[in-house]
Design a protein around this nucleic acid. Sequence first.
RNA 1: GGGCCUGUAGCUCAAUUGGUUAGAGCAGAGCGCUCAUAACGCUUUGGUUGGGGGUUCGAGUCCCUCCGGGCCUACCA
Length: 571
Amino acid sequence: MARILITSALPYINGIKHLGNLVGSQLPADLYARYSRARGHEVMFICATDEHGTPAELAAAKAGKPVADYCAEMHDVQAELARGFRLSFDHYGRSSSQRNHMLTQHLAGKLADAGLISEVSEKQVYSNADGRFLPDRYIEGTCPNCGYDRARGDQCENCTKQLAPTDLINPRSAISGSTDLEVRETKHLFLRQSNMRDRLDQWIDSQRNWPILTTSIAKKWLHDGDGLQDRGITRDLDWGIPVRKGTEDWPGMEGKVFYVWFDAPIEYIAATAEWADAQGFDDSAWQRWWRTDLGADDVRYVQFMGKDNVPFHTLGFPATLMGSGEPWKLVDYIKSFNYLNYDGGQFSTSQGRGVFMDQALAILPADYWRWWLLSHAPESSDSEFTWENFQASVNKDLADVLGNLVSRVTKFCRSKFGEALPEGGSYGDREAALMDALNTRLRAYETHMEGMEIRKSAADLRALWVLGNEYLQDAAPWSVFKSDPEQAAAQIRLALNLIRFYAIISRPFIPDATASMMAAMNCDDWSWPESAADALTHLDAGHAFSVPDVLFTKITDENRADWEAQFSGQR
RNA sequence: GGGCCUGUAGCUCAAUUGGUUAGAGCAGAGCGCUCAUAACGCUUUGGUUGGGGGUUCGAGUCCCUCCGGGCCUACCA
């Protein structure tokens, strides 16, 4: 038994996430957490809402609410949706928690002690009308290169030229449209990542078998141009973690907060502390996951994230932890994902394009989405959601291959033998061959799940289900029953055990349907099967079962057409 | 502009990292079965691996080039 720490990239607070966000981190992390628990490992699975930054403040203003209230409400909404998708977090925290305040300030203090923080005065654009400094991309104006009149202060979307806000002609605030802008001097803290470049480079090199997507992005940042740059870790905002050096004031930094980029990953640790607090445990309960001097040296730490988050997790967060000089647990494996596209374009939170978590649950149960999203996870390249593909996969894989198998077995038994495992007969060569085939495929499934190869795992699981249908077709108990009812009884006894076997191994993908399967088998023993032979002799003759409701209702062409129309425009 | 990823059957994806005849699922065609959600099983039709060139005994895999798709480029997070 191992100890496995799993974190999912933190969903940002400013609205409900779409299916692309879900499949890029939280859902595969949940699959791995569920599988790891099923194999008997001790798991700590952490996620949280990422609540700081300019977009959170703007979203709150748009909603007409104080930002703290807005974040609290949106956290509850996201937590409820996470439960709806059966995401099995041990704790779903908040980056605005007191734990994160304390830990972020503590780490900043340690970094300062280690000489890894510098203070830099710089000029930034301030909007008098908005009463705030504007990030580059919140300034709009006319591009000096191509004349496009909605160029942003970081880049012109029309001609792709890199810009500085002061390059823009007739600059205005993208928030209010005000042209009452001025350049002000302001002082910020920078994390001296450049001092740690070699250390980070060696650390990346020492990792084995990380996805190429992960290492190539890290290497690019380490070596491109002048190499890894220092990075600002504070902002002139009201909402956030006040800049402090541990528990001390930080002279000259009054009224400033840490930048969301700095405090968000620290929340992984703080959320584990929040978990301990919620459970009524003392600090040692979370420290044994995060401090290698306090019990975390045998922990395997796996992070899940979309590719856009890779630089923060391969460079920024490790620099923070290494630079503190304290023995924090560093990540062992980073599983990163490409993007899921929606019907020929991108999912977009800002444009409301695609299917969002609340909408998805409103039309179909979580298992349908979990199965499709995981079996099509964008691992090697971007992948695409289409309603046609979704309908075909769900109907064929879930309803026909698995759901119908459960249905045909339980209904046949009820009509011929009653609602208990029938007695008589024995397993022979055909059953032995099935068990061999199941074992072989089960081992492949386990290997792929342990390697977090999501799509291959899904394909293995489906192949395991198909073996059940092949067996039934070959054994044909409905035919055998006419001449040798005892032999048919043995075949059906095996098939009913097979349902329980499938419930156990399929649970990480489809937790609700497998719960129904297990309940129908009148059983509560979820222990992972050592072998197919063990699993298929688990329930004995005479054991009562019931015929479950249809596990998966098919998606009709009418459903599909309706949803295509419903989600074709903007949210 | 620079960097990285990517292009394989009508569709979604594989291919043990350079090694026999490029494989699965879906869709299509045919047959079988009748327990079951018109479900299941078997057989089968689909590929000049984006185009061109090169290295090699051997290339989907490595190199060059062209074409297409995507991401990142440090103040969105």
